[in-house]
């Protein structure tokens, strides 16, 4: 209805453009929201169909397991950052956190302190804690805070190794990440399933997750409803750091050692996966289930292009195009949220 009368925007900071204009003209041209939500899935099905017809090796059990193993690190890191995005913030430091944990792991393994390597995920959580405190209590924009800590964590990592490749000398970590504990199932797939289960449970089934959605939907309302907004923000950054740190351990095991920029590519890919899945950068909508779709799309695309023997340079072009196409759809949705 056009006549749903809205009241009283006395808040001077939140000016809205004429809403009727935006909505009525756009709504008529775009598919319904329910249909639009399915677009990421449709894109995935289309990609699967395309690569299946192009190569007999694509849709095979072996290749699916390869893809699962390959996607696992991105999945773990992206799931951690998803809750932050749902709350309307962003964590740009995930790649640097993964790097610092990976570098420390390789470093410690060279010095023989292998027993404490698993505890390095707590370093990731600590990094998240720093982000969270700066965002929630010092009240700085998360974009700037995590941009700053991205450089700081990256710098610390480079300092530790002096910029050299350090090989990992801790077979049990390598086995836990690269091995096949159950039959042909790669360990990465299992870790991925654990990360999915934990983050989905947190997001959809806990009070904490609900608060994250409320903050993303409207922070003032969450506050007025008595929710501990600051504390929730700190915890969600800690969770993001924890998973990024774990991603770092997987990364160093996968690469067999650490280099000072190993986590870098994961930052933008993770954000791309989150947004492609349909989580709005404005916060409040989306979640882990959508990030899974985003990560799978990226993996299918990357893997598929290799399998059909496409020029590697085309990979990034294709990835970028798919991101933009997928985002067109999600952006419309988030614009609605911003305008209405």
């Amino acid at each position: 209805m056009t006549n749903s009368h809205v009241s009283t925007p006395v808040d001077r900071s939140s000016e809205r453009p004429p809403e009727h204009a935006a909505i009525s003209s756009r709504a008529s041209r775009l598919p319904r929201p329910a249909v639009r939500q399915l677009v990421p899935y449709a894109a995935l099905v289309a990609l699967l169909a395309f690569f299946t017809t192009q190569s007999a090796n694509f849709l095979t059990v072996t290749n699916i397991l390869v893809m699962a193993q390959s996607a696992s690190i991105l999945m773990v890191i992206a799931l951690g950052a998803t809750l932050v995005v749902v709350a309307g913030s962003v964590d740009l430091s995930v790649g640097a956190v993964a790097t610092i944990v990976g570098v420390l792991a390789a470093h410690l393994s060279q010095q023989g302190h292998t027993s404490s390597i698993w505890l390095l995920v707590l370093v990731g959580a600590l990094c998240g804690l720093v982000n969270g405190i700066l965002v929630a209590y010092v009240r700085l924009p998360s974009f700037l805070v995590t941009l700053g800590t991205m450089f700081i964590f990256g710098g610390i990592a480079a300092k530790i190794t002096g910029g050299y490749f350090v090989s990992l000398n801790y077979p049990s970590l390598s086995e836990a990440v690269n091995g096949k504990p159950i039959g042909q199932i790669p360990a990465g797939l299992l870790w991925m399933v654990v990360a999915i289960a934990v983050s989905a449970f947190l997001a959809y089934r806990t009070v904490f997750g609900r608060r994250v959605y409320a903050i993303g939907g409207n922070e003032k309302v969450a506050k007025l409803a008595g929710q501990p907004v600051e504390r929730t923000k700190v915890w969600m950054f800690v969770f993001s750091g924890l998973l990024a740190g774990f991603g770092g351990l997987m990364l160093v095991a996968r690469a067999g050692g650490s280099s000072p920029d190993m986590g870098e590519p994961f930052l933008l890919t993770a954000i791309a996966a989150i947004v492609m899945g349909g989580t709005s950068l404005n916060g409040g909508v989306g979640g882990p289930a959508r990030t899974i779709v985003g990560v799978v799309i990226i993996e299918v695309l990357t893997n598929g292009l290799i399998i059909i023997g496409a020029d590697p340079y085309y990979q990034n072009i294709a990835l970028g195009s798919v991101i933009i196409c997928a985002v067109i759809v999600t952006i419309k949705r988030s614009e609605m949220a911003a305008i209405k």
Partner: peptide, 30 residues
């Protein structure tokens, strides 16, 4: 408390009704 400015302080427009309703008493009602 029911605030003056419904859209900016009262309600989360894109959160379903039930989730909006239980927000002040998550532990008791949800």
């Amino acid at each position: 408390y029911v605030p003056l400015d419904r859209h900016s302080e009262g309600i989360i427009l894109y959160l379903p009704i039930d989730l909006n309703m239980t927000l002040s008493a998550l532990r008791q009602s949800a």
